[in-house]
Each structure stands twice: as structure tokens, then as C-alpha cells.
Amino acid sequence: MVVRTWRHINERYCLIGTRCKTCGRVYFPSRNVCPYCRRKGKLEEYKLNGKGKVYTYSVIHAPPKDFEKIAPYVIAIVELEEGPKITAQLDCDIDEVYIGMPVEAVFRRIKEDGEDGIIDYGYKFKSLEN
């Protein structure tokens, strides 16, 4: 999956999505077609500031293989200030999280392709409260 990792570096490292110049909606991950404007839409790169609030969350106790070492961990859907919602892990205690908690993006290892494979980096979110 080396190529897939590489292709998304901008989005996963720097939270760069797209914005439709026609309707102003911001998309993350980026889209090539604005679902609202379609052919009238004009999409441009748009960098998100990484700040948002927890929209909903779950604590995962039955993790996939790639995440066994960190379980139990918090997965959340974060509503970003610019509008889009994204799925990400939270770097916080499992009893700390609540809906509405203010968070900010941080740079973390997400997973690796075995001990001799590529390391995937990307965003997680941390609480802004402490």
C-alpha cells in the first residue's frame, strides 16, 4: 500500500481538502466533484486549521490487528471549524472524551506495514482542555 500512502500525504499530514468556489462548501477528504454544484462547481485546495469539536465517539475494545497495541482507544468523528466532519482517533483517556469536547489535530503514527514495511503517518486529535 506504499503508493496509496504516498498519494494521500497532503491530506493526512497537513489536512488539505478542497473547497467549492461556487457554493463555498469545504470537503475533507478532497473531492473532484462538488455534490451540490456538480458541473457548476469549481474545487480548489483548502487547508483546514485542524481545530474542531467531538461530534460523536466510541471506545474500541475489539481492535483490528494494526491497533491491538493501543486498545482500548477512542475513535471519534470530529466536526472541524470549517464544516467538514472527519473520522480520527483521539489522543486522550477513554473516560475523558465527551460530545462537544474541543480538539486539535496532532501528527502521529497511524500504523505500519509490518516491522519491515512502510510507516503510515497522519492525523489524530488531542483535547484542548488540558
Binding site: P29, Y57, P64, Q89, I110
Partner: peptide, 17 residues
Amino acid sequence: EWESFFGATFPSLYAMM
């Protein structure tokens, strides 16, 4: 690419619902 990659499991998506 945007859910499973980041550690969301299928049950966790419904859990978030």
C-alpha cells in the same frame, strides 16, 4: 482510506451512531 485506515472498526461506526 478515511475510516478504516484511522482505526475505525465497523462496529465502532455503528457505535458512534
